[in-house]
């Protein structure tokens, strides 16, 4: 695998969401609030593997969970 020259995950603008792969099939996502008194809020999602452990729920479940809330 090539060397990882990517910049670190950061929130460059307020009210933005940034998602990056962080190894294997895991994704780190940050929600910025645009307000220093709130957030930011991180989520880790993992990708379904037939036998693999998962770091977090599949990304689609995060959206459905938000729908429930």
């Amino acid at each position: 695998m090539a060397q990882n020259n990517a910049p670190p995950v950061s929130l460059e603008t307020p009210r933005s969401i940034v998602a990056r792969p962080v190894g294997n099939e895991t994704v780190l996502t940050l929600i910025g609030s645009g307000d220093h008194s709130r957030g930011p809020w991180p989520f880790v999602t993992g990708i379904s593997g037939l036998n693999a452990d998962m770091a977090g729920p599949p990304a689609q479940y995060l959206s459905v969970a938000a729908w429930a809330a």
Partner: peptide, 19 residues
């Protein structure tokens, strides 16, 4: 301390797009 639902949905969208 916790995010509103609407941005959380789009966090799932962003993560799904990456995956």
């Amino acid at each position: 301390l916790i995010p509103p639902p609407f941005p959380s949905t789009h966090a799932g969208w962003a993560a799904s797009t990456v995956a």
